[in-house]
Simulated assay, not measured.
Amino acid sequence: MQDKKLTRREREKLRHRRQMLVAAIELFSEKGYHNVSMHEIAKRAEFAIGTLYKFFKNKEDLYKALIMEKAAEYHRTLIRALSREGDVLTILKNYISAKAGVFADDVATLRLYFAETQGASFNIKAGLDQDIRKLYDELVEQLASTLEKGIRKNVLRDLNPYYTAVALEGITNAFLFCWLEDPERHSYEANAPVIRDIFLKGVVAE
């Protein structure tokens, strides 16, 4: 639902919730999940602790909301890139570039997102890993479908589209990790042509 369709009170409530999530992700990134309290989050967001608990029943609930919102946003961005009209090679190039879009100005979220999706254990993930896995599986299937179209049109080599999709995910995620470790030295955006070159040279039909 877009903000313009909400009442003023609903928009204000949504804005407060976003402020709380921003404060939480800053603190989780700085100190780690276990070293942050709900009181610290409330203080950083400049809300009373009681107000924070009106939005989230506990820290686990807040964390799950934070990760799932970012995962869903990431998923929507990439599915949108794969759903655009155009030739397969252009779609793949746009997909590679789009992978940094959600996190372009938010390395803290990227760090938490990858910690969760790569299996880091916070002992709080009840149901969360399955939810993220479902989004990931949908994305890989959509990517595989795009690759399959390229194979049918003889643009791409006749390789297993699912495993080719997994391979592309592996390459792009490796470059995102480099970016995460040293954003200034390993810009994902600057390396996007390298990623395209590495991947497409292996899959483009002769």
Rank of each mutant, 00 (worst) to 15 (best):
T146S: 09
F47A: 11
R84H: 07
F47M: 11
V155I: 06
N160F: 00
Y95L: 07
E26M: 10
V194M: 12
E26H: 13
S37C: 07
A48P: 06
I91L: 08
T90H: 07
A72C: 13
F55I: 15
K31I: 01
R9V: 12
Y113L: 03
I49M: 10
M20I: 14
F56E: 09
L66G: 14
E116H: 13
G50W: 09
L62H: 02
F55E: 15
Q19F: 00
S97F: 10
G119R: 00
Y136A: 07
A42E: 08
Y95S: 05
Y136H: 13
M1D: 12
Y163D: 03
E184T: 04
L52R: 01
L52E: 13
E73G: 15
E69Q: 12
A144N: 03
R80L: 09
T146K: 06
L112I: 00
K59I: 09
G119E: 02
M1S: 13
G127C: 01
Q2V: 09
G86C: 02
E10S: 14
G202M: 05
S29G: 09
H39K: 15
N123F: 06
K59D: 00
L21S: 05
I151S: 02
L110N: 06
H186D: 05
M1P: 10
E189M: 12
A48L: 07
F122I: 04
T164A: 00
A45I: 06
A190Y: 02
D158S: 11
E69N: 15
K99N: 08
Y136I: 02
H39P: 06
A126L: 09
Q130T: 08
E206R: 07
I132N: 14
K93W: 07
R18A: 07
K64N: 11
R111E: 12
R8I: 10
H75L: 08
D106E: 04
T51R: 13
S37H: 04
R111G: 06
I198R: 01
L143Y: 02
F199W: 02
K134G: 09
G50A: 13
F55D: 15
N160C: 00
P193A: 01
E85W: 09
A115V: 06
A104F: 12
L135M: 10
P183C: 01
Y113G: 01
R17Q: 13
A81V: 08
Y53I: 05
K99M: 10
F122V: 04
I198C: 00
R44S: 11
N191A: 07
Y162F: 06
E40C: 04
K4N: 14
K5W: 09
D131M: 12
L143N: 01
A108S: 11
Q2K: 15
N154R: 04
T77C: 15
T172I: 03
S121A: 13
L82W: 01
S121T: 04
L78G: 05
Y188V: 02
T51L: 07
R9I: 13
Y162K: 03
R11V: 10
H186C: 14
E10L: 14
G32H: 07
N35R: 11
G127V: 01
